[in-house]
Design a protein around this nucleic acid. Structure first.
Length: 634
RNA sequence: GGUCCCGUAGCUCAGCUGGAUAGAGCAACUGCCUUCUAAGCAGUAGGUCUUUGGUUCGAAUCCAAACGGGAUCACCA
């Protein structure tokens, strides 16, 4: 309707306004709730053209529109706004159109370009945490939204399965794992621990042991004892220590950190970890076996976590396969003059013209850095999938700079698809106590959180007691859906790019703007429809008068396809979440205000049932797009 | 210091391609279950939209500066 009005005004501009008008002058929007009307046109832009008062201008446009469109029953001009009132007929036709659609708002599958969505991308040295949850739910939801909007979507993740951090866990396990009676070190099998948890435990253990050693080393240094009488280290230490004199706290702690780094570099543990990394890179069989084994434990653990989350991937990339990629590209770029070489042999790109800095793309020893790898991986992906048009990277905003540079480099290397690559950047998740810090043990574990949320859902659902006739398995399934639905919605409803606060109590709340509230409404509708299926034959769409409550719901329903498009275009499930909440609120308002089953007028009753059914369908799809299940009872 | 992001009710967030009296939820207070699931609905209260300038018919929204918070600027990933 908006489109039709807009088109009409443009096409007949000459007769209405006496001149051609720019489409940007036409501002159509839903009328504010406080005002009567359905569609509002802002009249101000036309006042100058028509050289009359806002009232006369509005009157003139209103006349023209209501003559043209029989759907416009009447109109009002108030304060420079033209409020169009649409006929019941129009709303009934819209309801009819929406209710008979298969998946209203869903574009034809694969009618839009293929995109790859990357999310999760964990390290294999520790379990997933709250930050990953935001990342994963966000990326997963965006995948579904893009798919619904017509794209073919390939869901992927890069698993950071190599590097010094992995070696730390491996080394700690080798050194510090106790032996059991059969002489075995700890494994998921003999401890019952989830694989990623076990490996994470040894990562923490490494840190603990390292800190102890570091403390020891610094103690020795302070007493003037330097291993092998190492002069260089001694000088550095003394220099740093002297720098501490007369400094304030902030500078002091920065210097202390530097001293710690110095001590770490001299520690046995760090040295051993680095040696292990070298052995790994040399493909030492024993190291490789250990690495494969421990990563295997982690994958098993991750699989269980992903499964509970209800997310999946189509294609996995492993850093151990890709970390050598990109070097050729850099050398090619070097030849074509995009990169340049410094005296020490390191390769850089100069981005100062773009307002950025110089950026390293290859170390002086010829080895790859993160950037090198990402260049290679991106190119490989486009080779793997010949119909790929772009990549969406779901990665935290601390890497904004990295991706800015990455996309620029890819563009300079001549890959036209670089402009279809998008960094879906999201803000950090803070706790009421402040930032999550692994060092301070304030990290919220993903499995623990999911468990907690499901337990809470269980407790509160039992309290409500609407579950007669469900068997035990169905009940457990339901608790799971409610708990996770709440958690997902909580993390998704906030604008992705904004930093957000995670309040544990609010995340398991069932009332208000929450996942369970949306699910509850769905369950309610299902329960209603179980008692009376709408019989479409009885609905004569021309003969029913609509109440405001009903019209409001239809208005919201109409918006759904538009919201999906917007959410897809801006990669923002939050838009969809807010929309869904509005839809559900208007439905509940309607549900509470009118009778349905006991309505005596058959036509009205059937219309209301159709309305409820339609909301149920759209709601189910909307929840699906957020990765949330829609229970039929709760 | 350079670059980028953010600042809206006590708290958590919408609104930001300029438009009517700035909205929700939570927390507080009042009502509504012999009637379709009260995980609901209706209502009361709560605001110098960080500040100051500018752009114009009109600014929470656009521009500039200041203040406050965060991120990033590694031969780390």
């Amino acid at each position: 309707m908006y489109q039709r009005i807009s088109n009409f005004l443009i096409e007949h501009a000459q007769t209405i306004f006496g001149e051609q008008i720019s489409p940007s002058l036409i501002q159509l929007s839903p009328t504010k709730k406080e005002q009567t009307g359905d569609i509002t046109l802002v009249v101000f832009p036309f006042v100058k053209i028509l050289k009359t008062s806002p009232v006369d201008a509005g009157q003139k446009i209103g006349d023209a529109l209501s003559n043209e469109f029989r759907e416009i029953a009447s109109f009002e001009v108030i304060n420079g706004f033209l409020n169009l009132i649409l006929s019941d007929d129009y709303w009934m036709n819209e309801l009819n159109r929406i209710s008979t659609a298969q998946h209203f708002g869903k574009a034809v599958s694969n009618s839009k370009p293929t995109v790859m969505v990357e999310y999760s991308s964990p390290n294999t040295n520790k379990p997933l945490h709250l930050g990953h949850l935001r990342n994963i739910f966000l990326g997963h939801s965006v995948s579904r939204i893009l798919e619904f909007a017509g794209h073919e979507v390939i869901k992927t993740q890069v698993i950071n399965d190599r590097g010094i951090h992995i070696c730390k866990s491996m080394l700690a396990w080798e050194k510090f794992s106790p032996l059991n009676s059969s002489g075995e070190r700890e494994t998921p099998q003999n401890t019952g621990l989830k694989g990623d948890k076990l490996v994470g435990k040894y990562y923490v253990e490494f840190d603990k042991q390292l800190n102890a050693e570091v403390k020891n080393i610094i103690g020795n240094w302070e007493n003037g004892q330097f291993e092998h009488d190492h002069q260089e280290i001694k000088l550095k230490f003394l220099e740093l220590s002297n720098a501490k004199i007369d400094k304030d706290e902030k500078v002091l702690s920065a210097i202390d950190d530097k001293i710690k780094d110095l001590a770490k570099s001299q520690s046995t543990l760090m040295r051993e970890a680095k040696e292990m990394l070298l052995r790994w890179e040399a493909r030492d069989p024993q190291t490789y076996l250990l690495w494969t084994t421990m990563n295997g434990w982690v994958y098993e653990g991750f699989d269980r976590t992903y499964q509970r989350m209800g997310v999946e991937f189509d294609k996995l990339y492993y850093e151990s396969d890709t970390f050598l990629l990109g070097k050729d590209q850099v050398l090619k770029g070097l030849n074509s003059g995009i990169f340049f070489k410094k005296d020490d042999g390191s390769v850089w790109i100069d981005l100062t013209d773009e307002g950025l800095d110089e950026k390293l793309v290859l170390r002086s020893d010829g080895t790859a850095v993160y950037m090198t790898q990402d260049i290679g991986t991106a190119i490989e992906r486009f080779e793997d999938f010949s119909n790929l048009s772009g990549i969406v990277y779901t990665v935290g905003n601390e890497q904004d700079y990295h991706f800015k540079v990455l996309f620029l480099i890819l563009e300079k290397l001549g890959f036209s698809w670089a402009q279809n690559c998008y960094h879906l950047s999201y803000g950090m998740v803070d706790l009421p106590s402040g930032k999550m810090k692994s060092r301070e043990g304030t990290v919220v574990d993903a499995d623990d959180l999911m468990q907690e949320v499901v337990e809470k859902a269980t407790e509160m659902t039992k309290e409500r007691g609407h579950l007669d006739g469900l068997d035990e398995e169905e009940k457990l399934n339901l608790y799971e859906q409610i708990g996770l639905g709440g958690l997902k919605y909580y993390l998704i409803k906030v604008d992705p790019k904004k930093r957000m606060l995670f309040n544990p109590e609010e995340s398991i709340e069932l009332n208000g703007n929450t996942g369970p509230f949306l699910q509850y409404t769905h369950a309610r509708i299902c329960s209603l429809l179980k008692k009376a299926e709408p019989n479409r034959q009885n609905v004569q769409f021309g003969e029913v008068n609509l109440l405001d409550e009903e019209k409001e719901v239809v208005k919201n329903l109409i918006q759904f396809p538009l919201m999906v498009q917007e959410a897809a275009a801006s990669y923002s499930p939050a838009l969809l979440a807010n929309y869904t909440y509005e839809l559900v609120k208007s439905f509940n308002h309607f549900y509470q205000a009118v009778k349905i089953l006991s309505e005596e007028n058959v036509k009205t009753k059937e219309m209301r049932l159709v309305l409820a059914e339609t909301v149920g369908g759209v709601l189910k799809d909307a929840l699906y797009l957020m990765g949330i299940n829609a229970p039929t009872r709760m």
